[in-house]
Each structure stands twice: as structure tokens, then as C-alpha cells.
Write a protein that binds this DNA or RNA. Structure first.
Lengths: 213, 213
DNA sequence: CCAAAAGTGTTGACTGTACACCCATGT
DNA sequence: ACATGGGTGTACAGTCAACACTTTTGG
């Protein structure tokens, strides 16, 4: 068997980045400015470069394309269907990213389209198999929400109970009972109360919580 | 940015193949007959060849190395840590495979080590990061067992309730109550009764069930 | 008739769900 | 004083867990 028979595919990293904003679960999309799929929306992604792991490549892509530094990243799946990229065999190692809103302002850079957030309920046509990637990421996020602390990655370090509940309601796309939610969270033991409160609103100040027992 | 900067890694496919045999969850290992890690156990794997997807490569590897044709395959994770293969950047796209026991007899082939089943409780030192791959596969299998039909892949098409329970007990590594198990399975609706029974044992014949409502 | 696994219900504990009012603050 | 979200308990229903005996076959 000669070396020639091996397939050394080009590898790209594509990232489904979610955040919760205005009571909606949103995903970050860019507008492609190159063929193929020019002027079609896509999730941010880029080629894997020498010396990178897929994870560091994902972090670089998010920094370059969206100015995002602090982010939760989880590898999802490797998409390798033949023909998924018209240019040839390109493997996409996909990641889910979660960040707290608001995202940093992206200064308009040369040759880089400004990324935009779209509600997952109103996703436009996407390039390549990116629709499938977003669906996969969403299923994973929803699946892990209830038994892990993954949801806390879209919250600031200190948060109120209603902010937390809003995250759960938004990601699961259903309303939850306030008292039952509180009971469940308390018994799961993911969060601890702080001595801080969030005031300045025109209602009773809310206690601030943080992750960790 | 020149084409030279892209990393086009070599890609291998590694498979954690499980079966349930003699009340134990077993994983298929081969003995490596080449460097690196010569004479160390490893999970079956092989290079991705031109024209293959990782899935078809995994199927080919299982056919070539273990004579296995019919198999459940699920992609797990892509391992890309630098240095995971001393020869250079090699990405491993990993799969979990499940088959019913007994496995087909593997005719001893030239240059191919006979694969052997090992209890997951007694896994020897493994090559590369294969220990991590097996752990990951096991966690996935256990996690999906209770809310999917993944466990049925280690059973023949027709099976008795106690065979089914044995699979669950073995994979979860704990004993289950017979009546509660039956109730839960019946209400999950994964299985349907057939008109066949499995006799010939020196005890009361057991009804045979099959997957599907 | 004995050995072996098949098959079958009930009870109490626990967990999840539904539901309504008072509280603390800013304006 | 009022508008706004913050914060709290109870009762019912459904699910889960524990538990032992009878049945059917082969030897």
C-alpha cells in the first residue's frame, strides 16, 4: 500500500456560537464574501493551520472573525461527507461555542464581514452543511443543559435567578415554573449565593448567585 | 496566506468495538505488530484511504481486521492532540461499534494479528491515547443506554427479556430488578413481543422479543 | 420431583408539577 | 401609592424502588 493512497484531507473548523439575548437563543453567522456560497450566510470557520489543534484554530477563528476571547468551546462532530465542499475533500471538525451576551463590538475589518446574531428560530439559508451543524449543536446544547453546568456559559459570573431561568427557558424553548426551577437548581447544587444583590432597577433587588458549591 | 500554511493531517480511524459476552462488557483489541507501540494492545484502526469517508473506512477496518460485516457504528470524537502519534500530526476520528456476540471467527491472516476481546474491567496498557478513546466510548454507551435503543445492537434480532436485562446490567455494571426492568421496557415501547419462544433449555421457555413497536 | 430461569403486583418513598400571594425597591 | 419583578410553600400525581412467590419446562 503506497503513501499515495492515503487521504490527507483539508481540515476546516466550523463553530456554532450561541448566546442568549433578548430572550432568544441566537447563533452567530457571517456573510461569505468568497466562492463557494458567496453572499450566503455561514457559521464562522476557517482552515486549520500548521501548529494548531482544532481547538486552538477554533479560538483563533473566533478571535479573528468576532473579536471573542473568552469562550466555552466543545467539540461536536466531524463532518466528512463527500461533496460537502464543492472544492474537494474537506473535513469539518465542528465546535459549539457559548458566550455571555453582549458580544464584544466587532470593529469592521478589511475583508472580514461583520458577524451577526440570528435567532435560532429564524435562520436563513446557510452555506455547505452548516444547517446540519447548527441543528446538531442545538440538540447537544439542549441535551446537556439539564444535567450539566453548560448553560452557565452564556451568563456573566454573577447572575440573578431570573437571568438563569431565562437562559433555561430560552434554550429549551419552553416556560418553566419559578418555584420549581428554584428548587431544582438548589438541589442540583451548581450555584451558590453571594452577599451581593443587583439593585438599581425599579423593583426589589435580586440576590446574585455564582457557579460552584 | 499561502497553501503551505495549511495543515493537512494524516487521518486514521480508530474503533472501540464492544460486545456483551459471558456477562461482561468486552472491547476488541489487537496486538500491534509494527512500531510505534509494537507488541502493545490497541483498538483496531487504520488509515483513511482515498475515496473513503471515515465511516466507510471504519467498516473496512472492522471487516479486514475482525471479519465483522454487520455492525452498529457511531462517530464519537476527533482526537488531535499534538504528539498523540510520535510520527507526526495524525488525527484520529473515533467510532464506537457494537455487535452481537459471538463475533465471527477470525481466520488467521498474514500480517494481521488476531483480535481478542477483553473485559472493560481488565484492559491492558494501550497504545497511543486509546485508553482515553475507550473511556470516552464507554461513557457515551452508558449515557445513551437508558434513553435510546443503542443497547439492542449487542443482541440478536430476537431475544429474551433476561438477555436484554443482562445487556443493561453488564453495560451499566449494576444489577437491576427484574420486575421494574420489565415495566420500564414495556412503557418505553422499544420492543414488541413475538409468537416465538426460546425453549430447549432445562427451564421454562422464554418469550422472544424484537425491537420496534 | 427437582433444578432452573420465567413470569407476575403491591406498597411506600421520592420526585416532578401545578398553583397564588406577599415583598422590596424605584419612580 | 403603584408598578415591577423578587421571593416563598403546599398538595397532588406520577415515577421509581423494594420485595417473594408461582409457573413451566428439561432432566
Amino acid at each position: 500500500m503506497s503513501q499515495k493512497e492515503f487521504l490527507n484531507p483539508t481540515v476546516v473548523v466550523d463553530i456554532a456560537l450561541f448566546t442568549v439575548e433578548e430572550g432568544e437563543l441566537k447563533v452567530l453567522l457571517i456573510n461569505r464574501d468568497n466562492e463557494p456560497f458567496k453572499n450566503t450566510r455561514a457559521i464562522p470557520g476557517g482552515y486549520l493551520l500548521k501548529g494548531e489543534t482544532t481547538r486552538t484554530a477554533a479560538l483563533r477563528v473566533l478571535r479573528e472573525k468576532a473579536g471573542i476571547d473568552e469562550v466555552y468551546l466543545e467539540q461536536l462532530y466531524t463532518f466528512d461527507a463527500p461533496g460537502r465542499d464543492p472544492r474537494g475533500p474537506v473535513f469539518s471538525v465542528t465546535y459549539m461555542a457559548l458566550v455571555a451576551s453582549p458580544l464584544p463590538e466587532t470593529k469592521q475589518k478589511e475583508g472580514v464581514q461583520t458577524p451577526e446574531l440570528f435567532s435560532v428560530k429564524k435562520i436563513p439559508k446557510l452555506a455547505f452543511d452548516h444547517k446540519e451543524i447548527v441543528s446538531y449543536a442545538l440538540a447537544r446544547l439542549q441535551g446537556k443543559l439539564e444535567y450539566t453546568t453548560i448553560g452557565f456559559n452564556v451568563l456573566p459570573k454573577f447572575f440573578t435567578f431570573s437571568q438563569l431561568q431565562n437562559v433555561y427557558e430560552t434554550i429549551l424553548n419552553k416556560t418553566l415554573d419559578k418555584r420549581n426551577f428554584r428548587k431544582k437548581m438548589e438541589q442540583l447544587g451548581f450555584i451558590k449565593e453571594t452577599k451581593q444583590v443587583l439593585g438599581g432597577m425599579r423593583q426589589r433587588p435580586a440576590k446574585l448567585y455564582t457557579l460552584g458549591k
